[in-house]
């Protein structure tokens, strides 16, 4: 394996949790709900998946538990913002704080436990293609799923009736309601989906990426996922690209150090964040203001208002 291939592989695995979490949030936001609780749901996903995987000695059960935990957290959020029409920014933040705390309680007994690596799945034939073979066809299942999920969500949003419903609710919930569309029900499902994805991303971190659990291990990745959704202008295809660019920025700054350029490491560490701001800026320069943001994003929905 060449160095270049190896670096690309590392980038793909570093980007995958960001992509999965961001995809979920994208669907939630497309329905018009802003959930800032991604970090908390992700932390819960990581803790619960690891606890379950160790207890039952099964990665599959762990993954399911992680998604369940994320979805349960999302359901709590949905209760507050849909049921009580509470402020979404505040509630999302509360969810993050709550999730970080609760995940600490759940994970504590599992500190020090470890899991064996999840073997990469080799697609016979394809993985023998020179260069791109190893890169594209010898990854773990999560990587394949994240790419598949991107395509499915893109198709769902643009090609299906239900996807159109979701989008029109996100664009303008008042007129969608007037048309008889079930605003709250669709949003509820979208929030749950977002939670399950965040939980899955957490499970990936705990079960594949680090293979042990530690407090605060999500380390701000939920926030990056939120940034990526805006960066991608709420489009799944761009999300894939954005996640890989961000992953590349984080990994390449480490390579820049190893290559001994002599630039202060803090400058290199700041590159991914500055790059995100720059990307957001360039994007809006090209497309004009607030590209692609769903019209009703973040506004509570109350009928007859």
């Amino acid at each position: 394996m060449t160095t270049f291939e190896a670096i690309l592989l590392t980038i793909v695995t570093a980007s995958t949790p960001l992509l999965i979490a961001a995809l979920g949030e994208l669907v939630t936001e497309r329905s018009g709900v802003l959930n800032l609780g991604v970090e908390g749901m992700m932390a819960m996903g990581a803790a619960c998946s690891f606890a379950a995987a160790v207890t039952f000695d099964s990665t599959l059960i762990g993954v399911m538990a992680g998604m369940m935990a994320g979805a349960l957290m999302a359901a709590l959020f949905a209760l507050v913002v849909l049921g009580f029409a509470a402020n979404q920014v505040g509630s999302g933040l509360a969810l993050t704080i709550f999730g970080l705390g609760l995940s600490g309680l759940i994970g504590a007994p599992f500190v020090g436990a470890r899991r064996d690596p999840v073997p990469p799945v080799d697609i016979p034939g394809l993985s023998d293609i020179p260069f791109i073979g190893r890169l594209f066809f010898e990854q773990d299942l999560f990587v394949y799923s994240s790419v598949a999920l991107t395509i499915l969500i893109a198709l769902y949003l643009t090609r299906t009736r239900s996807g159109l419903t979701l989008r029109s609710i996100g664009e303008n919930h008042t007129s969608a309601n007037a048309l008889g569309l079930p605003v709250l029900r669709v949003r509820f499902v979208a929030i749950l989906f977002g939670g399950a994805c965040a939980g899955l991303a957490g499970a990936y971190l705990a079960l594949v990426y680090t293979r042990f659990w530690s407090p605060g291990m999500t380390a701000g990745r939920g926030w990056i996922a939120l940034a990526l959704v805006v960066f991608a202008a709420w489009r799944p295809g761009w999300l894939l690209i954005g996640a890989y660019i961000f992953g590349a920025a984080t990994v390449l700054q480490l390579h820049a150090q190893a290559a001994q350029f002599g630039v202060p490491s803090q400058v290199l560490s700041a590159v991914p964040y500055l790059a995100t701001i720059l990307a957001l800026l360039l994007l809006s320069l090209r497309h004009g203001r607030a590209v692609g943001a769903p019209g009703s994003l973040g506004a509570p929905f109350v009928p007859d208002r």
């Binding site: 029409a85 509470a86 402020n87 509630s91 709550f98 995940s103 600490g104 309680l105």
Partner: peptide, 28 residues
């Protein structure tokens, strides 16, 4: 009692206050 409990409590408290606020403004 672990520190995480404090954090979880802060989250719950904020959720409850926001929900209570909404309850006052809307009839459910």
């Amino acid at each position: 009692l672990p520190l995480d409990l404090t954090q979880a409590f802060q989250g719950i408290l904020l959720l409850c206050v926001l929900a209570a606020d909404a309850l006052v403004s809307y009839r459910i």
